[in-house]
Structure formats: C-alpha cells, structure tokens
C-alpha cells in the first residue's frame, strides 16, 4: 500500500473510532486513552512520509536547479558556448555500430 493509502486508512480508522465512541458508551478513561493512541499512530505515520518526500528537495540546490527547465536551458547554453565548436564525436565514424 502506498504511503498516501496508509495515511487515508489511518484517517478512516480514526473517524470510525470516534463514531464508535459516540455509539457505545465507554468509560471516559478508555475513551481518552483510545483517542490519544489513535492520534499518536496517525502522527507517527504522517511524520516519516513527509520527511521522506522532503529529503530530496530540502535546502538542496541540486533539486531546485535540476527541476527548473528554464535554468537548465540557460546553463546548458552557457556550457555549449564555452565549449565552442569542439565536436563531441568523430566525424570519421562510418557505418552501423
């Protein structure tokens, strides 16, 4: 199951639990205990997911630059200009490789 799926399932579980608590008369201490456990579970599920998604981008110039097509066009043009007319491959190559 994907992380989004897990988070959704946890959310659904919490909603059902709240509804259950309304329907069934529970002792207050069990009621509060269950709520805290469920909240903690959701928090623990959400935290690593968000952390993972952020890792590649957080304060990362590699990511901000390489996901920006405009910047890349500008830089690759700069590189090509600096390289001049130097060919990348020999013109003497003939035939199918």
């Amino acid at each position: 199951m994907s992380r989004q799926g897990v988070m959704q399932a946890a959310g659904n579980a919490l909603a059902f639990a709240v509804q259950d608590q309304r329907r069934i008369k529970m002792k207050p201490i069990i009621k509060y205990g269950a709520s805290i456990v469920l909240t903690l579970a959701v928090f623990l599920l959400v935290l690593p997911a968000r952390h993972a998604a952020w890792s590649a981008q957080e304060e990362n110039h590699c990511f901000t630059c390489h996901t920006n097509a405009r910047k890349l066009i500008q830089i690759t043009r700069e590189i090509a200009k600096a390289r001049g007319d130097k060919p990348g491959a020999s013109a003497e190559t003939e035939g199918e490789g």
Binding site: A53, A56, C62, F63, H66, L72
Partner: peptide
C-alpha cells in the same frame, strides 16, 4: 539532465539526497 519534481515523492529513492 532535467529532474521531474515528482522524484521527491518516490518513497524509496526520493528519500535520499542527490549528493
């Protein structure tokens, strides 16, 4: 060399820093 920003959503490889 263009990187799709969706790469950050890759739960395995996106969790690693480029470096």
């Amino acid at each position: 060399i263009f990187v799709d920003s969706e790469f950050a959503e890759d739960e395995n490889h996106g969790a690693l820093g480029c470096h």
